[in-house]
């Protein structure tokens, strides 16, 4: 197993600069909602960038904007030095199998009417890979996410939440992407399952060199998996930097509040943190 990529000599994979996204309300004259304001962030090859924030902070919108699922108002998104922000959603999706996704909800992210094999081979066959080849690749993918043989003939509902998340990871890996947007991928999982799925993410990254944009509301999850961390509040990135420094000695007031607000599993330390949290207000 290799160590982390050398942070100093990072080879940049994705550069986002001054990204703005606005949601229009339904109907005529409906108010607009600024979801992202001048967001800039970059992700290196093989690197995990964690994105923390509370609900409504825009972290999910940023992920969806990078995937081409949300239209961008202005700003630039350069992937391997090619601009992808100006393209239409469809064009962008077709041109960039390099960016894939793992969603939060393991129940809604897999089509209940399709077998695991159909789910995993779909991205391959749509690009003209032969059936036989796709089948071998599905087997390989399941192997990578440590699911036993025979899983490919099953339907999603036959799997537990953690196993479904593994299938979702396998689907994301099918096209050998360079970046995976992970939108709260362990939030719906139980504690012990969550730890194992996180370790799988890390293991895959070390083996394949894929980069992650890891979105989560849970600062401890983000610290566990991220090399660098960015904190979002009301559509803006208010702080970013090395994972350890942001999550243990943050500079921004909000990050400090966020950090102290999440309780730690130690009654004595938690009592002390609580007192500090209450004194912040």
């Amino acid at each position: 197993m290799t160590g982390p990529p050398p942070l100093a000599a990072r080879d940049t994979l994705l550069t986002v600069s001054d990204l703005n996204v606005t949601y229009r309300g339904r109907g005529f004259r409906a108010p607009q909602f600024r979801a992202l304001t001048d967001v800039s962030i970059d992700i290196g090859r093989g690197e995990t960038v964690g994105l923390v924030g509370e609900s409504g902070s825009g972290k999910t919108t940023l992920g969806r904007a990078l995937l081409g699922l949300v239209p961008i108002d202005s700003g630039s998104v350069r992937f391997e030095s090619a601009e992808i922000a100006g393209l239409s959603d469809g064009q962008r999706r077709r041109r960039s199998p390099d960016i894939q996704v793992v969603f939060q909800d393991p129940y809604s992210s897999l089509n209940p009417a399709m077998t695991v094999e159909a789910i995993l081979s779909e991205p391959l066959t749509v690009r003209g890979v032969s059936r036989g080849h796709a089948r071998r690749r599905v087997r390989e993918l399941l192997d990578q996410v440590q699911l036993a043989a025979g899983a490919e003939r099953r339907y999603p509902r036959e799997f537990s939440g953690g196993q479904r998340q593994r299938i979702a990871i396998a689907r994301a890996l099918a096209l050998e992407p360079k970046l995976i947007i992970c939108d709260e991928p362990v939030s719906a999982l139980d504690l012990s399952t969550q730890a194992r799925v996180l370790d799988l993410f890390i293991e895959i990254q070390e083996r394949t060199g894929v980069a992650y944009l890891f979105i989560s509301h849970d600062i401890s999850v983000v610290r566990y998996i991220s090399h660098r961390v960015a904190v979002m509040l009301r559509g803006e990135i208010i702080e970013s930097g090395d994972g350890e420094s942001v999550t243990s000695s943050p500079e921004h007031d909000y990050t400090r509040r966020l950090l102290l607000a999440s309780p730690v599993p130690d009654p004595l330390r938690q009592a002390e943190r609580r007192a500090r949290y209450l004194s912040l207000q």
Binding site: G3, Q194, I202, R223, Y224, G243, E244, V264
Partner: peptide, 20 residues
């Protein structure tokens, strides 16, 4: 096992980069 799965006390990845 449950307590061992909590991440609050785990070392940050940026320090080690090695999986726990």
């Amino acid at each position: 096992m449950l307590l061992a799965s909590t991440l609050e006390n785990a070392p940050p990845r940026s320090r080690h980069g090695v999986r726990r």
